[in-house]
């Protein structure tokens, strides 16, 4: 067999713009994360959220008249209050986020990515986008479907369902940004996916444990701001009109946004220092 220079059957096309390039990374990473474990976690999360949304509304409908008009809106808070939602979301984040950057560090394919016509920021956006999409499927979609179901079954009026949807969206999006940020940052710190996954789980669950413990010991509820879960619960309680939470929903929301921005910045900073063409 003789060899000859590659003769391309298509003429050289104009290269697509940068969003298309990182879009290719996003698509690839999104599909790569489509593993059985992630689908199982997503299924469990959806089942937990749907059940804890629809069943309380069903029961409330059975006993309609026994509840005041404000009680129904509070029912949307139930999925967030049990801890199951947070725990499963942490598991999902650990599973989808663990290898997002660490695998590229391990295989040293980061070199190839950054030697392409994209920036480190593009790379980070694409990788974060894939993680965020998966967390979005778990943090926002099930609760939104829950609102739609209670509306369709007549358990809630349209304004009530919209209020529930708005609250779910606010809490869910805050969870998406915070969990994505910490997942991408911790994944960029290690070339071992398992270690990164354990780190994500440990930091999120550990911060909750530390916050609860410190708050109990010192009798200072403001230690709750150290935990993403406590902050998300505070935002949810504010969104659904549930009183009694010692944390301010606005402060909690600002902390979550600040936490997300900081972790994204740290991940970018970490990539800036990553060797592209090692000596």
């Amino acid at each position: 067999m003789s060899i000859h220079a590659p003769e391309y059957s298509l003429p050289p096309p104009a290269l697509r713009p940068r969003p298309d390039r990182w879009g290719a990374i996003l698509e690839s990473q999104l599909l790569e994360r489509g593993k059985a474990l992630n689908f199982v976690l997503l299924g469990l999360l959806s089942a937990a959220v749907l059940l804890s949304t629809v069943v309380p509304f069903y029961i409330a409908t059975l006993f309609r008249g026994g509840f005041g008009p404000g009680v129904s809106a509070r029912l949307f808070f139930i999925p967030f209050s049990t801890g199951v939602w947070f725990f499963l979301l942490v598991l999902l984040s650990s599973s989808v986020g663990a290898g997002i950057v660490s695998r590229d560090l391990a295989s040293r394919s980061l070199t190839l990515y950054l030697a392409r016509p994209i920036t480190r920021f593009d790379y980070l956006v694409a990788k974060s986008g894939a993680v965020a999409a998966w967390i979005f499927f778990g943090a926002v979609i099930p609760s939104s479907i829950g609102c739609f179901i209670v509306l369709s079954l007549g358990y809630a009026s349209l304004p009530l369902a919209l209020q529930g949807f708005g609250g779910d969206l606010a809490v869910g999006l805050l969870a998406v940004t915070a969990f994505t940020g910490i997942s991408v940052f911790l994944s960029s710190l290690s070339s071992r996916s398992a270690l990164a996954g354990a780190g994500i789980f440990g930091v999120l669950i550990g911060s909750e444990a530390v916050a609860v413990l410190l708050a109990a010991i010192s009798n200072q509820p403001s230690f709750g701001y150290l935990s993403p879960d406590e902050n998300l619960i505070a935002v949810a309680s504010g969104a659904f009109g549930v009183g009694g939470d010692p944390l301010s929903p606005w402060v909690a929301a600002v902390i979550l946004i600040g936490f997300s921005a900081t972790t994204f910045f740290l991940a970018y900073w970490r990539l800036e220092g990553a060797e592209v063409v090692p000596e």
Binding site: H4, P6, Y8, L10, P13, L15
Partner: peptide
């Protein structure tokens, strides 16, 4: 090829050609 900016179809066709080379 796609990360370099090639459209998907072109990237696959070129990948076949260049791997043959």
């Amino acid at each position: 090829g796609r990360v370099s900016g090639l459209p998907k179809e072109v990237a696959f066709r070129r990948a076949h050609e260049v791997l043959q080379f």
